[in-house]
Lab assay of single mutants.
Amino acid sequence: QVALSRTQVCGILREELFQGDAFHQSDTHIFIIMGASGDLAKKKIYPTIWWLFRDGLLPENTFIVGYARSRLTVADIRKQSEPFFKATPEEKLKLEDFFARNSYVAGQYDDAASYQRLNSHMNALHLGSQANRLFYLALPPTVYEAVTKNIHESCMSQIGWNRIIVEKPFGRDLQSSDRLSNHISSLFREDQIYRIDHYLGKEMVQNLMVLRFANRIFGPIWNRDNIACVILTFKEPFGTEGRGGYFDEFGIIRDVMQNHLLQMLCLVAMEKPASTNSDDVRDEKVKVLKCISEVQANNVVLGQYVGNPDGEGEATKGYLDDPTVPRGSTTATFAAVVLYVENERWDGVPFILRCGKALNERKAEVRLQFHDVAGDIFHQQCKRNELVIRVQPNEAVYTKMMTKKPGMFFNPEESELDLTYGNRYKNVKLPDAYERLILDVFCGSQMHFVRSDELREAWRIFTPLLHQIELEKPKPIPYIYGSRGPTEADELMKRVGFQYEGTYKWVNPHKL
């Protein structure tokens, strides 16, 4: 086992960053958080920038500027975001240094004079007029057009580079997404736009490419001749908990499936790229999406959770019991969808996408189930092999396979070949997804960000279904809070070829 401390991990990262040409360590950078008073800024962006600063992973002359409508001070920003920093008493001095680099400007999102004030403020910072500028839009999409237009007109660096990070949702359907994309691309070049999907920053999602293309053993079996089906799962054990009003506007397909799960599907299904260059990788992902037809209604199961009468606390409440959810809402909190990649490698292999709230566990994984062994000599005792990439929690890679049961006879039983990170790298604290992705933006690497043509294809696949749901308002199937979801989803999976045995229990190697 390799035991690495946080300091050692960050030392390795620093070495990698400083050796590259793309990370300008000594240049002045300004990180501007648009929507600095909001939840995302408070819980994710400010803490992430602090962790990067604490670990010495930001360029040395980096300033952080918050911008929002609320009249706040840096002290206010500190008060609301610091509880999420997880700072230790030993880091007190470092924390003071961090907040000394912070400033805040209040202004409207659609007022040109406010942006001119913001620009004057940035120019007044040390070497601010020639600094590289990175704008993070932690804002609702309704203000994107006004904000990007004003940034472009008043706040661009004339000497350094300018980059803009856009948070999902990128529209509600193909038409609104196209409108937003066309607007942003009329102001910024594609190499300046970073559409963030934080799932692409997760260690195991990034590991998929290495697993596939750096190991000879997987190449020959990664196709329709050997793989019976692919299941991509995202499960949350909690409901909307008072935030249903926002969720109800989008629903589970827009929230998770059309982005996170579809991105994971691309990494499983794509061909080997010409290189690890950002556009070479994204070219292959677009090719996969172009091979997927629009979702067919007979390959869809929609569910909505109801309270568990035997549960406790939140578990007793259904989705419609959330006071922020519109009365009688038919918005799905669970969806199972089957897609097919219609190309030579994957023809006929079902890709089953499942996601839901208020389920029995927290889990995100990719599961490849292989065909049955031909010419069975073990009297149907063999179960199908599976390769599982567990994204969260407890990152893991393992192969479910058959071995001989101890004893006199040739009785096979299920076991696993474990390729888990935790076994080799004991207690290594890896940077989280937002840390990686923000560092990628500083480096100018777009590999783990969504390109406009990729986004367009993703919406093309799901828009007809979303429009049909909005028009017909089908009643989702009720499922109990804390269950596996509607049984109809299991029946759909069985119908397209997935075999669920229920006889195997994964042993978490992190707890051995």
Score class of each variant (00 low, 15 high):
D490M: 11
N343H: 08
L368Q: 03
A336R: 01
W459P: 00
L492H: 06
E414R: 08
M408S: 06
V256M: 08
I377N: 08
G313I: 12
Y479K: 01
L262I: 07
E414W: 12
N308I: 09
E491C: 11
M447D: 04
I377Y: 12
N394Q: 14
P326S: 07
L471V: 15
R424D: 06
V450R: 02
V256P: 03
E416A: 05
L419M: 13
P273F: 00
V496C: 11
E435F: 03
G303N: 06
N385A: 02
V428C: 14
P476E: 04
V428A: 15
Q468I: 10
V341Y: 01
Y481V: 15
M493H: 10
Y398P: 01
V338N: 12
V300R: 08
L437A: 01
F410Q: 09
G356V: 01
I377T: 11
G375F: 09
K475M: 14
G422K: 09
P406E: 01
S445E: 13
R484D: 01
W506R: 01
A358P: 04
K400C: 01
Q380F: 09
E284A: 09
V441Y: 00
I477P: 10
W506A: 04
K290I: 01
M402C: 11
W346M: 02
K475Y: 11
C382H: 14
Q381K: 11
E342Y: 10
E413Q: 14
L466Y: 05
R495E: 13
T276G: 13
F498M: 15
E365Y: 05
V428D: 15
V397I: 15
L320S: 10
K505I: 12
L267H: 07
V268R: 02
T331M: 08
L430G: 04
E501F: 10
L261H: 05
G356A: 03
T333R: 03
K272G: 07
K494C: 15
V295T: 10
N385D: 12
P326H: 06
G328W: 10
S445P: 05
H260F: 02
V295N: 08
V441P: 08
Y481C: 11
E386P: 02
R456I: 05
C443W: 14
G356K: 02
S275T: 13
S275H: 04
V268N: 05
V306E: 11
P326L: 07
V288A: 10
Q392I: 03
D376L: 07
P326N: 06
R327H: 14
Y340Q: 14
L455V: 05
E314G: 10
V288G: 05
P431V: 11
I477S: 14
V281T: 09
A269F: 04
V428N: 13
K426T: 13
R451V: 00
M401C: 12
N259P: 01
K317Q: 14
D440N: 10
R384Q: 08
E416G: 10
E454T: 02
E491F: 09
G407C: 09
R254W: 01
V397M: 12
I352A: 01
V388M: 00
H260E: 01
Q499K: 15
E435S: 11
L359R: 01
N394S: 09
S293A: 11
K285S: 03
V341S: 03
S278M: 03
A396V: 06
E413W: 11
E457P: 01
C382W: 11
G311F: 09
Y340A: 10
M270D: 01
V288H: 00
R362S: 09
L302K: 04
K400Q: 04
T276R: 11
D372P: 13
Q446D: 01
R424T: 08
V286F: 08
V341M: 10
E271G: 07
C355P: 04
E413V: 13
L262E: 04
P431R: 06
Y340R: 12
L455R: 07
L289T: 06
G328L: 10
G356Q: 02
Q468D: 12
T324Q: 13
V288W: 01
P326G: 06
T333W: 03
E457N: 08
R460M: 06
K473D: 12
L471R: 14
T331E: 07
E365Q: 06
E491M: 14
V268L: 13
H379P: 15
I352K: 00
E501Y: 11
R390T: 08
T503V: 12
V349Q: 04
D255V: 03
I389Q: 02
D279L: 11
F498K: 09
N385H: 03
P486T: 00
E416S: 10
R390A: 13
E416N: 04
G328V: 10
K287V: 07
V288S: 08
E491P: 01
P350E: 02
T333E: 06
K505A: 15
C266R: 00
E271R: 06
T463G: 05
L339D: 00
D372G: 11
G318R: 06
T420N: 09
T276E: 08
D283E: 07
P406V: 08
G482M: 05
K426L: 11
T324W: 08
K357T: 00
F410P: 14
A374P: 14
N343Y: 01
I477C: 08
S275G: 07
R436K: 14
Q258D: 01
I477A: 12
V338S: 12
K363G: 05
R451T: 04
E386Q: 05
E395A: 12
D280I: 13
T463Q: 06
D321Y: 05
A274V: 12
P273T: 01
Y500F: 15
E312L: 14
F378I: 07
P478Q: 14
V388R: 05
G482H: 08
I389N: 01
E314F: 12
S278K: 06
L471F: 11
L359I: 06
H467N: 14
Q296E: 13
H379L: 10
P474K: 14
V397N: 02
T403V: 08
T399D: 00
N385G: 07
G485F: 04
Y319D: 00
T333G: 02
V349R: 01
C382I: 14
V288T: 11
V341K: 00
S293Q: 14
Y481A: 12
D279V: 12
V300I: 12
Y305R: 02
N299E: 15
N508W: 08
R367I: 04
L430A: 10
N394M: 10
L387E: 05
Q381I: 11
G318V: 00
V286I: 05
G407D: 12
H260V: 03
F351K: 00
G485L: 05
E284C: 13
